[in-house]
Design a binder for these strands. Sequence first.
DNA 1: CAACTTTCCGGACACGTGTCCAGACGTTAG
DNA 2: CTAACGTCTGGACACGTGTCCGGAAAGTTG
Lengths: 194, 194
Amino acid sequence: MSGKLTAEPTRRRLTERQADTVRRLTEAAVEEVRETGSDGLTVRNVARRAGVAPATAYTYFASRNHLVTEVFWRRLSALPPVEAPAEPLPEEARERVVAVLREITLLVSDEPRLAAACTAAMLGNDPDVQELRARIGLAVRRRLRAALGARADRRTVDALELAYAGALLQAGMGHTSYGEMADRLADIAELIVR
Amino acid sequence: MSGKLTAEPTRRRLTERQADTVRRLTEAAVEEVRETGSDGLTVRNVARRAGVAPATAYTYFASRNHLVTEVFWRRLSALPPVEAPAEPLPEEARERVVAVLREITLLVSDEPRLAAACTAAMLGNDPDVQELRARIGLAVRRRLRAALGARADRRTVDALELAYAGALLQAGMGHTSYGEMADRLADIAELIVR
DNA sequence: CAACTTTCCGGACACGTGTCCAGACGTTAG
DNA sequence: CTAACGTCTGGACACGTGTCCGGAAAGTTG
C-alpha cells in the first residue's frame, strides 16, 4: 500500500494545447458513444474524431477504460459545491442528501449507453482507473458529508455510498432507468437518514 | 420486446458428455483465475485447461463474459432454498434477510479476483449475459422475498436489491473486502427491514 | 459393417487493445 | 540560420476476442 503514485513524479503540467487535446478527446468519446453506441467507442475512433493520432490518445489515457472513466470524473467535478448548513434539521439533511444522490445519479443519465460504459469502465484494473475511481469515491463521500453536515456519521455515509453504487450498477445493467433509480435512491435515503 | 429467445427454440437438452464439458469449463475458469489472475482468464486458456478446443468452448458460451457469469450463476443456484416462516416477526425477518444477503455476498468471496471478474462480466451486453443476469436478479429477489415472507413489499425488496448490487460493485472495485461488505449490508438491512 | 448425422477440432480471419519506435513537425535557444 | 528539444505521427507488433468453415471423430441408424 505504499507506492501508488509511482508514475506520477515526472508528471508535468499540461500545455494549453495539450489540455485542449485531452478535452477534445473526452468530448469525442461522448459523441462517439452517442452516435454509434458503446461498441463504437474505440480508442482509435475517438482519436480520429478528435483529430489526433491513436498513439497520441494513448499518451494521455492509459486505456479505453481510463478515457471513459475520465468522462465521468469530469462531469462529477464540474458540479457546483454542495452548500448546506453545518447543523441541519433531520428533514433538511435528508432533503439535501436526496438532492446530492439525484445529481450524481443523473450525471450521465442523458446517455444511457454512456452510463453503462462508465460503470463498466470503472471496474477496470489499470492503475489510472484505480486512481480516478478513488478520486470519484472521495468526491461522492465529500458531497454526502457536506449534505449531512453534523449528522454525517460513518455508518450513514457508508450506507448511502453503498446505495449509490447499487443504483449505478443496476442502472448500468439496464434493469431500470436512471430516473427511476434516482427515485428509488430517494426512498432508501429516507430510511437511512433519520 | 417480443423476440428475446430467438436463439433458444432449437436448444436441445445437453448430452451427459456435453454437460460434463460445460462443467469442466466453468471449473477450469475458476482455477485459471485463481492461479493466473483475472487477466489470465482467457477463453483459450480455459479451454486448454478443460481439455477442449477454443471453438468448442464458444459453442457453449457466447463470450468470455458469458462464461464468467455462468460461474456465478452456478454457485447461486447451488444454494439450498431459503426456508422461513410465512409470517415472521420483524426481528426474524431481518435476521433471515441478513443471512440471505451474507450468503450471496460471500458466494465468490473466497476468490476476490474471481468476484471482481464476475461483477465486470455481468455488465456485458451479450444477450446470453443479459439472460443470465435476469435469472440471477430473479433468484436474488426470490430469496429475499422468501426471507421476508409476508413483510415483502415492493419497496423493501427493491431497497435490499439495491444495497446488494452496491455491495457487489464496491467489493468488485476492491475498496472493501467481501467480509466487510457483508457486515455493512447487515447494517443497512436493519434500517430497511423494520 | 457401412452410411449418415452430429459434434469437435484446429486453424484462418477481421477487428479490437495497448506498446513501441523511427521520423516529421514546431518551438526555443545558441 | 541552424541545432536541439519535446511532441505528434503513423504504422508494425503481440495478443486478445469472437466467427467461420472444412475435415476428423464419435454416435446413431440401416
